[in-house]
Amino acid sequence: MHELSLCRSLIELLQEQAEQHRFTRVKQLWLEVGPLAAVVPEAMQFAFEAASRGSLAEGARLHLVELPGEAHCQACGFETSISQWYQACPRCGEYQLKVLSGDELQIRELEVE
């Protein structure tokens, strides 16, 4: 359900951008999503459709760009990729992974007119 409030924030951010960069329509947008971002891609698409209705982004194509997650093991120092919070270190087996990246949720590119 919080995908909807995130998409409402997104529409407001787009309106700010539209004033700053003088555009009136958003045609496509690319959203980077880390595996730990606590959003469900399908729910984001659905919420975006609902939140964009009647706005400058109505009918725009939302592309989800999935990013890798990375973590550092505090026990053995190994660096590894992760897809969820509770993974054991693949080298030493300890649950001591400190997440370095993977919780991103940001728009990186817009196609506007």
């Binding site: 997104l10 951010l13 787009l14 949720l105 990186r108 590119e109 196609e111 506007v112």
Partner: peptide, 10 residues
Amino acid sequence: QRRLQVELDL
């Protein structure tokens, strides 16, 4: 039509 590179964290 224009492409904009942005950093808009949701």
